[in-house]
C-alpha cells in the first residue's frame, strides 16, 4: 500500500446517516475475488433500480470521477466486511468525510489507504451544502479545504502515521518476532489453560 500526504479531487455528498456496510456492498457480491474489482458494486442497491439500471440522480452516478465522499454520522457501521472498503477504493475514493464512522470500518479503511476523516457534525453540513466541489486534503495538517473553508478533521495518531507511511503491518510485526515468541512462551508457562485442550 502506497503512503500519501495530500490529496486533491472532487468531493461529492451522500447526505445519509448510518450508511451501513450492507448498503456499501450487499452480501451477495462478497464471494467475488478482489481481482475482479468491487467498484461496480459500491452502494449497488441504492445506485440502481431493481432492473439494474443506474439512477442518474444518485450522486455516485452523477459525478463518477469523485474521490472524496461526504456523508452523515455513523458511516460504515455494521459488519467487518473489508469488501465495503474495497468497493470505495476500487470506485476511486481516497477520503470519506463524516461526523463518525463504524470502528471496524475505520480500521479497515486505514489498512487500505482510505482516510476516514472525522469532522464535526455542523461542519459536515456546511461541506454537504457546498458539494460537489474541488477539495484538498492534507493528512499531516489534518485539514480539508473546500473553496474558502478549511476544516480540521480528527484521526488517531496511529492511523495518521500508517496512512502517511503506507505501512504494511505484517512486515512491521515480523520485525517483532523475538518479542512475540518471548511473550508466547511466558504466557504458556504462566497460563497453560489458555491453550485449547488437545482432543484425543
Amino acid at each position: 500500500m502506497a503512503g500519501w500526504r495530500t490529496h486533491q479531487g472532487q468531493a461529492i455528498a451522500l447526505p445519509l446517516e448510518n450508511v451501513d456496510t450492507d448498503q456499501l456492498i450487499p452480501a451477495r457480491f462478497m464471494s467475488i475475488p478482489r481481482s475482479a474489482g468491487y467498484g461496480d458494486h459500491l452502494l449497488h442497491d441504492l445506485r440502481r433500480g431493481p432492473d439494474g439500471a443506474q439512477n442518474p440522480q444518485f450522486p455516485l452516478n452523477r459525478w463518477p470521477g469523485a474521490s472524496v465522499l461526504i456523508a452523515r454520522r455513523n458511516f460504515g457501521c455494521g459488519s467487518s466486511r473489508e469488501a465495503a472498503v474495497y468497493a470505495l477504493v476500487d470506485a476511486g475514493f481516497q477520503v470519506v468525510i463524516a461526523p463518525s464512522f463504524g470502528d471496524i470500518f475505520a480500521g479497515n479503511s486505514v489498512n487500505n489507504g482510505l482516510l476516514p476523516a472525522q469532522v464535526d457534525e455542523e461542519r459536515v453540513e456546511t461541506l454537504i451544502a457546498a458539494a460537489p466541489a474541488e477539495v484538498t486534503v492534507d493528512l499531516a495538517a489534518g485539514t480539508v479545504t473546500l473553496g474558502e473553508q478549511t476544516v480540521a478533521f480528527a484521526l488517531t495518531e496511529a492511523a495518521r502515521t500508517k496512512l502517511i507511511n503506507g505501512w504494511d503491518d505484517i512486515d512491521l510485526t515480523r520485525a517483532e518476532a523475538e518479542a512475540i515468541a518471548a511473550f508466547r512462551n511466558r504466557r504458556l508457562g504462566a497460563h497453560p489453560w489458555a491453550w485449547p485442550r488437545a482432543q484425543g
Partner: peptide, 13 residues
C-alpha cells in the same frame, strides 16, 4: 471483530 487485512495479519503473526 476484525477486517480481512487484520485476518491475514493474525494468521501470519
Amino acid at each position: 471483530g476484525i477486517g480481512a487485512t487484520e485476518v491475514a495479519h493474525v494468521l501470519a503473526t
